[in-house]
Structure formats: C-alpha cells, structure tokens
Design a protein around this nucleic acid. Structure first.
Length: 371
DNA sequence: CTCCGGGACT
DNA sequence: AGTCCCGGAG
C-alpha cells in the first residue's frame, strides 16, 4: 500500500467520523442517494433528509414510480433542484433499463443523469470495491496541498494532474476502497479543511501528512487551492402576490429549469435588474407585470393591497429583493392561467417551496412552522 | 450582518 | 465560463 493510503486509513481508524447514517452502507441505492444529497450540501443538513427520503422511498423502484412533485417536495430546502429532477430521472432509468439494479462500472454510472465522474467512482468504490479514486473538492484540496499545486485547479492540465495523482494514491487491496474513500472525505472535512486546517493550529498540529506536505513545509497551506475571484452578483427586484381566499392560497408552478426550477412560488413579476441596493425601494411594479399569469377583475384589488417590505435572498450570483402584496379575495375575483393553482393551506406541506417563500408563509402564519 | 464552500451540466 | 441554493462560519 502506498504510504499515503496507509496513513489515511490508519488515521480514519482513530479519528474518522462516526455515526453518519450512510457510513458502512453498501446498497447502491442508498449510497447514490447520500452522494447526490451531499453534493454542495453539508452533512448536518443532509442527515435528517436522507432518513426521511428513505422512509418515503425505500427502493429505487419506489422512487421511480413516485410523481416528480412528491420528490420535489421532499427535496425542498436542500437547494440545487436540478439534483432532484435528475435523481428522479435516474431512478426511472435504473428501474426500466437496468432492472432496478445499479451498474457497477463508473463509466456506466457516469452516463446517468446527475452522476458525474467523482460521484460515479464513489458509488463504485463504496458498493463494488472499485479501485478508482473520487476527486471532490475535499480530495482536490488535500492533494493540491500535499503536492504543492499552486495554480488554478480548474485548468484542464492541473485537473488531469489531480485525477492522475488521486488514482496513483489508491490502495492496492480493492477491499480497502470503501474505507479509503470514506477516509478521503472525512479527512478533507475535518483535518485538511478550507479554513482553519489542523496544521495551522499552533498548539496541536497532528496532521499525518505534515512531514510530507509541500504546502505545509513551504507555508503555503492557506494559499492552496488558489481561490478564484467570483464575479459580483447582480441585484434583481421582484414583487410577489400573496393571494388568499378562505383557507386557500394561489401558487405558481415554476418552469422546470432556471432558478427554483420545478418548485411552487407566489405569483411574481419578472425579475428586474437594478444597479445598486439603493434602487430597490424605489422600484415599483404594476398589475400588468403579473400577466399572463394573474390578473384581477378589479384594478383596485391590486392598488389597495397592503405591501410588505422587501425581503432579501442571496443566490450564487443573484441577490433578489422581493416585496409582497397581500390580497384577500373571493376566488372569482382572480383570473389565472395554467401555471397557477389554488392550494389549501393544509396541503402546503406536500409542495416544494423555496426556502424564502416558506419562511414568508410561516411568518405570515399561512404555513405552520415545521421546526 | 456578510462571506464562503460545495458537483454536474451546458 | 456561466448556471444552479442554502446553511454555517466568522
């Protein structure tokens, strides 16, 4: 075994994370689900949702047969909703084309929707002892530091270098692949962290790679991996309508792609870009901007509605400010198109709602708080 | 409050 | 290179 893998596995025996519900699991369905959830999402957030998801959809066939809306509802709040749509699409393919059994080769897994190269290898390693390395952000950071790779990890040459190194470091015994792969993830998450890695602690630096790590020996740990400047996010403004009639609320189903794709939101105007935060409060909207989705039989219903102060929500590279008009109506005072539906307040829990909308409805006591 | 981290897809 | 969200850290 390479000394790298040896050290890592030994470290994991003593200090690896314990008690996570997907650890030690070899069932490809469960491993796949956990890996997709853990993409871009922290462990603490995933734990409960993973259990909930499995209790609702115990098998890949159960997931494949579920309506997409049910899957979206269960995913709501996790973010990156393309993952949920791909998850459902992938389950259908596994059920129909693979007889409900996940393929074992990373190359085959990688062709399925939502399963990239690294996730494919994680599934293959955990479930089938496949001897190929994962390369998620944790592993990239670890290898880049140990080998002192100072340039951008995004360039194709540096990226290839990382994959090559990662594969060279894999243990020879295939039976060690599950534990080694888990160890890679744990080490990046708890020792070779993006901020405050263990080796930067002046008192106790017990990192097993300190003697080998080029970044550590050259004092470059915090410079690696090179952080790319992100382009400033645009500021957009919108207005939403909280339309209530008795125990029902009017919601709009968003198109399946784009922001909050496939989720249910309040009817809203198109998002208007403004140049600075100052312009947010003096951006005004008109009833016509809700067409063709929603209109009222009487203009005054809109004009006289109470308006709530703008709320802020930050995306990767959009910052949204949305104000909300609250309208209480009879249903026949509203005209809406196909993308809208009246939903009973008691049914809101079954729908996929974006986090800020959920929060707004909870604050407005339309939706009962879940936490 | 602001900032930052984290894969797949196009 | 740009598009997708959220929660935790600071």
């Amino acid at each position: 075994m390479s000394s790298f893998a040896q050290k890592l596995v030994k470290w994991h025996q003593n200090y690896g994370r314990r008690g996570l519900p997907w650890q030690g699991v070899r069932d490809p369905y469960k491993v796949w689900l956990s890996e997709i959830m853990l993409q871009q999402t922290q462990v603490a957030t995933v734990i409960d949702r993973y259990q909930l998801f499995l209790s609702k959809f115990p098998t890949v066939n159960a997931l494949a047969q579920a309506p997409l809306d049910d899957v979206m509802a269960l995913w709501a709040g996790l973010g990156y909703y393309t993952r949920a749509r791909n998850l459902h699409a992938c389950a259908k393919i596994i059920a129909s084309e693979f007889n409900g059994k996940f393929p074992e080769e990373p190359e085959t897994l990688n062709k399925l929707p939502g399963i990239g190269k690294s996730t494919a290898r994680a599934i293959a390693a955990f479930c089938f002892n496949h001897s190929a390395s994962i390369l998620d952000a944790n592993v990239q950071r670890l290898i880049a530091r140990v080998y002192g790779i100072e340039g951008s990890l995004k360039t194709s040459s540096e990226n290839k270098k990382l994959w090559d190194l990662a594969d060279q470091l894999v243990p020879k015994e295939a039976a060690l692949m599950p534990i080694y792969t888990q160890a890679l993830m744990d080490f990046g998450a708890t020792v070779c962290k993006p901020t405050a890695p263990i080796c930067q602690n002046q008192v106790v630096n017990n990192c097993v790679y300190s003697a080998d790590c080029i970044a550590f020996k050259n004092g470059l740990v915090m410079q690696i991996p090179l952080k790319i400047k992100k382009s400033p996010s645009k500021i957009v403004v919108s207005e939403m309508l909280l339309i209530l009639s008795q125990d029902e609320i009017l919601l709009e189903k968003r198109p399946s792609s784009g922001i909050w794709g496939g989720l249910w939101t309040l009817p809203e105007t198109p998002w208007v870009e403004v140049k600075s935060e100052n312009e947010v409060s003096n951006t005004s909207f008109q009833l016509e901007q809700f067409q063709p989705v929603v209109t009222f039989t009487n203009q005054s219903i809109y004009d006289e509605a109470k308006i709530l102060a703008p709320l802020k929500h930050v995306f990767t590279h959009r910052t949204l400010y949305f104000s909300t008009k609250v309208v209480r109506v009879q249903k026949n005072m509203v005209k809406c198109n196909q993308s809208c539906d009246w939903v009973k307040k008691s049914d809101l829990g079954h729908l996929g709602l974006p986090t800020p909308i959920k929060k707004l409805l909870a604050d407005f006591q339309v939706l009962k708080r879940v936490d």
